[in-house]
């Protein structure tokens, strides 16, 4: 079977497709998140290393952190697609993704701070991971600020897309700089991934919760894109014929 993908690049067709998909993503989001949290809270050890129950915030922390990074990649993907093919829908997807990405970054930071308070006794520590997320938040905010500062839709779409691409090029360098401020001492930067040290049981909890967050992101991004489509196409005839508009 051959699917005509470009059919769904038209906002009108995508609008109805997204409308049909959203309920499924919501169901999946709620199911996976609950399952992941249930597993994490009741099926894993009560103590991790020297940390007690409070370590369980990692299920939310890690899931939101992963999504924050992943959504940046997704945003850049749509931005690049927009710049290459000049499709309006791609820009709409990019801007809808940015808001959820920024929210996920914020959640990762807040849960990180709470975890920090319980385990290190301080709300904030200039730990490389937290610092990187703070900067990621700045970059998401910059993207959104630039977008809202430009009135002309076409310019704001393209300019923010370009900024997202520039960010993609520089974020890894920032990550490197924050993790390794002294290049004399991190010739071997490949510190062991913290994932390998995690018990399989806990990992399952994290992965399932992340899947739930991912489905949630799909649902809200699609909802937001539908709103952006309605706003931008409000003068077209297909919008004025919609049931939900005429109620």
């Amino acid at each position: 079977m051959k699917i005509n993908w470009f059919k769904y690049a038209a906002p009108m067709n995508f609008y109805s497709l997204a409308g049909k998909l959203i309920p499924f993503f919501w169901i999946a989001a709620i199911a996976f998140t609950l399952l992941g949290l249930y597993w994490g809270f009741f099926k894993t050890a009560d103590v991790l290393n020297d940390q007690k129950q409070y370590y369980r915030i990692i299920y939310v922390h890690v899931a939101s952190a992963w999504m924050a990074m992943w959504l940046y990649a997704v945003m850049v993907f749509w931005a690049a697609l927009g710049l290459i093919f000049n499709t309006r829908l791609s820009y709409m997807m990019a801007s809808a993704t940015a808001i959820t990405g920024a929210n996920m970054t914020l959640i990762a930071l807040i849960t990180g701070a709470i975890w920090g308070k319980t385990s290190w006794g301080t709300w904030w520590d200039w730990d490389p991971k937290l610092t990187t997320f703070l900067i990621l938040l700045f970059i998401y905010m910059g993207y959104l600020a630039l977008q809202s500062a430009i009135d002309d839709t076409r310019r704001s779409d393209k300019a923010s897309a370009l900024l997202a691409l520039v960010g993609l090029a520089i974020v890894p360098v920032i990550y490197f700089a924050v993790n390794c401020p002294d290049p004399n001492e991190c010739a071997s930067l490949h510190q062991e991934s913290s994932l390998k040290r995690v018990e399989a049981n806990i990992l399952i909890g994290m992965l399932v919760t992340t899947l739930g967050f991912w489905m949630y992101s799909f649902a809200v991004i699609l909802m937001r894109v539908r709103n952006i489509i309605l706003d931008r196409e409000r003068k077209t005839s297909w919008v004025s014929k919609l049931k939900e508009i005429n109620q």
């Binding site: 970059i139 910059g142 600020a145 630039l146 900024l163 520089i170 700089a177 924050v178």
Partner: peptide
């Protein structure tokens, strides 16, 4: 102001090293 907000975070690697 927007310009500073956009570019200052991107200067971090130069600042650090």
């Amino acid at each position: 102001v927007l310009l500073s907000f956009l570019v200052l975070p991107l200067y971090i690697p130069v600042l650090v090293y």
